[in-house]
């Protein structure tokens, strides 16, 4: 068993799959990061992904063009985010409950649409849908081992990597990032500064919609070449936990998503050697939640430790009052 795992983790193929598995969760985690920073939890990420995955497949098969499929998928994903924004920000409904409701609609709705079009409730294989292209990177592809890992990935994998830079820039370099953080941290201060928090939150939702849309389309038009019911497989939910593991930053999202990707890829291998597949498939989720718990625990412990040290140093500095 140990030897098997060692063999797996040293193979270029494993790392190729790791990157491929990391990409969708990375995209959707970035979406969760930017909305969390703006002070609204986008629980509808799962629904966004599901609709994007389905609409991408339908649009690409109707037009014969994968790019139009991607565009349509991202568009519908943004629409879901906007609907959430409408419920939560305009109608003042609870954002988490609205998100969960949208996800339930997506779970049933995608299957309904799929069945109406194909007569199949499980998979869209009867639709002649297209797949987004893979890219081979010149020069890099010739580097031994590394070339095999990095080159030849689907274009969305590279877009996911670029998205980290994109979200990082939004949050840290652009003025909108300061406004997002101000809105998330002290909404009254943002308002008093003439910032419209509703607009800021809508902006964050739209960005998260785009990111979730890319992730959803990747699942049905790259990672696999079909839409299957429940294809998002809870990634949208896990993203909100991964966001915490990421510490609310774009760069942190890489680590949080990687954690999921490593386990997801490992699960693919372990399934092959006949371990209980249901258990194995739960692994990436369990590990992310575990990461969530560990990160929260470590943070609290560190905080307590810092307090104790600070207190110790402050009492040593001065002679104190009292009868102790």
């Amino acid at each position: 068993m140990i030897n098997f795992i060692l063999g797996v983790v040293t193979s270029a193929n494993y790392w190729f799959i790791v990157l491929r598995s990391t990409a969708p969760i990375l995209l959707v985690t970035l979406g969760a990061v930017i909305t969390a920073q703006a002070g609204i939890m986008n629980m509808a990420l799962e629904g966004s992904m599901l609709w994007a995955a389905l609409v991408g497949v339908i649009a690409s098969s109707a037009t014969g063009n994968a790019w139009i499929g991607l565009l349509a998928g991202v568009g519908v994903s943004v629409l879901v985010a906007l609907v959430l924004g409408f419920f939560a920000l305009k109608l003042d409904a609870n954002a988490v409950l609205s998100g969960v409701a949208l996800n339930l609609v997506a779970t049933g709705g995608t299957v309904f649409v799929l069945f109406s079009l194909t007569g199949d409730k499980g998979i869209s294989s009867s639709l002649p849908s297209k797949v987004l292209p893979a890219l081979t990177i010149p020069l890099v592809k010739d580097i031994p081992w590394i070339g095999k890992v990095i080159s030849g990935q689907n274009i969305i994998v590279y877009i996911a990597a670029l998205s980290v830079v994109f979200v990082d820039f939004i949050l840290r370099r652009f003025t909108i990032g300061r406004r997002i953080r101000a809105t998330g941290e002290n909404i009254e201060a943002a308002k008093a500064a003439g910032i419209d928090p509703v607009r800021i939150k809508f902006f964050a939702l739209i960005v998260s919609g785009v990111l979730a849309g890319l992730a959803g389309c990747f699942l049905s038009m790259g990672y696999t070449s079909n839409f299957t019911s429940g294809i998002a497989a809870g990634r949208g939910y896990v993203a909100n936990a991964a966001q915490v593991v990421a510490g609310g930053t774009a760069v942190g999202s890489i680590f949080a998503a990687m954690l999921f990707g490593l386990m997801d890829a490992m699960a693919t291998y372990l399934q092959n050697i006949g371990l209980m597949p249901e258990l194995i498939q739960a692994l990436p989720y369990a590990v992310t939640i575990l990461g969530f718990v560990v990160v929260t625990f470590v943070r609290d412990r560190r905080e307590a430790e810092r307090k104790r040290r600070l207190f110790a140093s402050s009492t040593m500095k001065k002679e104190n009052v009292g009868g102790m």
Partner: peptide
Amino acid sequence: QHFMLVPSLTAAENLVLGKEPKRARTRTF
């Protein structure tokens, strides 16, 4: 009475919040 400030941003960042100076070329903060 309750200050409208964002604790994790600097004094300068709070001051210009909503009306931020931008770099001429890149339009960044």
